[in-house]
């Protein structure tokens, strides 16, 4: 003990070495962090490559009913109804979208089904940002395209820093959303009330996870482990 105490007293006098070490550590941490951040930025840019040549489907009117959990309703005059509960960051919702998105798009655009998207946000802060932007897109009549594009660039990881206003506005550009009202809505997070209302309405509809699908108000339960277009189409046509 005595030996150690003496020794440390001696080395404690060497301020130069101490600051050198602290400086080196700070340098390593700073360079490493910058290196990681830049790497992530590049990766995010790469994911936007998926949107090159994005085919815009065109504007389609959407209504949002605050009394009904702020669902985004498209083709509201059709008799058949489909209710979809999704979180922008949920990877399984993305699987559902890959399998059935184009079909649902067609149903809406040909007025064959009244489709209501319930945009949830229980996967963290970045889901809230993305959901807010989806409500903004709905206001501008570009929900379908924006929603599709969001899933096309969705990173494999949740809350990894991807869903920033900058990136959400960039997605908007690919689908023709460049208006000032959209930009303001995303930057100011103007739709948080609706985002919250949608989330709060989960228990009312007994929705516990995503994706959850109701066809004509009846819960759709898939029999296959993966999403198959044929299975979904049959269920919609029968429902």
């Amino acid at each position: 003990m005595a030996k150690q105490a003496k020794a440390t007293k001696a080395s404690g006098g060497d301020n130069f070495t101490r600051w050198l070490v602290i400086g080196m550590v700070t340098l390593v941490v700073a360079t490493g962090a910058i290196f990681s951040v830049v790497g992530q930025k590049n990766k995010a840019n790469e994911s936007f490559a998926a949107l090159n040549g994005f085919k815009q489907g065109g504007a389609i009117a959407a209504t949002v009913d605050p009394a009904n959990g702020s669902g985004i309703t498209l083709a509201s005059t059709a008799t058949k109804t489909i209710d979809l509960w999704e979180d922008p960051q949920c990877p399984i919702c993305n699987n559902f979208e890959q399998a059935n998105g184009a079909y649902i798009d067609e149903l809406v655009r040909t007025n064959k089904a009244k489709v209501t998207y319930h945009v949830l946000s229980f996967l963290g802060n970045e889901s809230i940002s993305a959901a807010n932007a989806e409500f903004c897109a709905a206001d501008e009549g570009h929900y379908l395209d924006f929603h599709k594009a969001v899933y096309m660039v969705q990173p494999a990881l949740e809350n990894s820093g991807f869903w920033t206003s900058t990136n959400l506005l960039k997605i908007g550009k690919y689908v023709g959303l460049t208006s000032k009202s959209f930009t303001d809505c995303v930057n100011k997070a103007s739709k948080l009330d609706q985002v919250k209302a949608a989330y709060d309405s989960m228990p009312k509809y007994n929705v516990k996870g995503t994706p959850t699908v109701f066809i004509n108000g009846k819960l759709w339960e898939r029999k296959n482990s993966s999403f198959l277009l044929d299975e979904f189409r049959t269920a919609v046509e029968a429902g």
Partner: peptide, 12 residues
């Protein structure tokens, strides 16, 4: 790094 960033975010 992205996993690390999202892991820290998950602590909220």
């Amino acid at each position: 790094p992205s996993e690390s960033a999202s892991a820290v975010a998950a602590y909220k």
